[in-house]
Design a binder for these strands. Structure first.
Length: 226
DNA sequence: GCGACAG
DNA sequence: ATCTTGTCGC
């Protein structure tokens, strides 16, 4: 019953999201010194608005262990659709899936630039990408989709709960003092507490290192440097 | 009808 | 996502 193909229509994606929300995969727990990966999709400079199907997109992925980069990959593709809230998977699901599969060594847990359970059908892209790759995932975003929560105090490591219909689905995490917090989401096989532990351990800058490097790689690929 | 709305 | 000016800090 494992899906291999990414849904290509709104109806198919929404059906897949309903299935993912009902799935109960084994919870994952980080061991010591885990391999933490990140992936990111970059669009052309100057793009504004939701974009369209066929937009060029570059993706980068990187894997870190402690402070060291273990491996990385880049690729490019065209977007499957414009961006629409709740349907991000249609736009960048396939290219992120592809760039992670190119990694010579897969991570133990993958950071995704998307929400998880904070989603109209409780299955944001972080959840779906993990299910497609059979990899535990954590979502990291600048903003919330539907959930709500006040920011934590301005001190590195401070957290505050983010809830949706009474459930804690994420935490705001202050990765750097004096900067806005990031939202750290439960993803595939992870809960909000595990998500915070994973991100806290690799947050030298505001954006956790594997995600930051994945973004740098994607933009370098876009610039033709890779 | 209007605004909000992961990236 | 991407753009944006200035500002603070290493």
């Amino acid at each position: 019953m494992n899906k291999t193909e990414w849904p290509a229509t709104v109806e198919a994606l929404m059906a897949a999201q309903h299935e993912l929300a009902a799935a109960g995969p084994e919870p994952w727990r980080p061991a010591a010194g885990p391999l933490v990966g990140g992936c990111f999709a970059a669009f052309p400079k100057g793009y504004a608005g939701p974009g369209a199907a066929g937009d060029p997109v570059w993706a980068g992925a990187a894997v870190y262990q402690r402070r060291r980069r273990v491996c990385h990959a880049t690729t490019s593709d065209t977007a499957g659709s414009p961006y629409r809230p709740g349907l991000l998977a249609l736009r960048v699901g396939p290219v992120l899936d592809a760039v992670v599969r190119l990694l010579p060594r897969w991570p133990d847990v993958l950071l995704v630039d998307a929400t998880g359970r904070d989603h109209p059908r409780r299955a944001g892209l972080a959840v779906q990408l993990g299910a497609m790759l059979d990899l535990p995932t954590v979502g990291v975003t600048h903003r919330l989709l539907l959930a709500e929560g006040e920011w934590p105090r301005d001190e590195r490591g401070a957290t505050s709960p983010v809830t949706l219909a009474g459930d804690v689905v994420a935490y705001w995490l202050r990765t750097r003092q004096g900067r806005r917090p990031v939202a750290v989401h439960a993803g595939w096989r992870t809960d909000p507490d595990v998500a915070v532990r994973v991100v806290s351990a690799c947050a030298k800058h505001r954006t956790p290192t594997p995600l930051r490097e994945a973004r740098r790689l994607a933009r370098a690929a876009r610039a033709g440097a890779l």
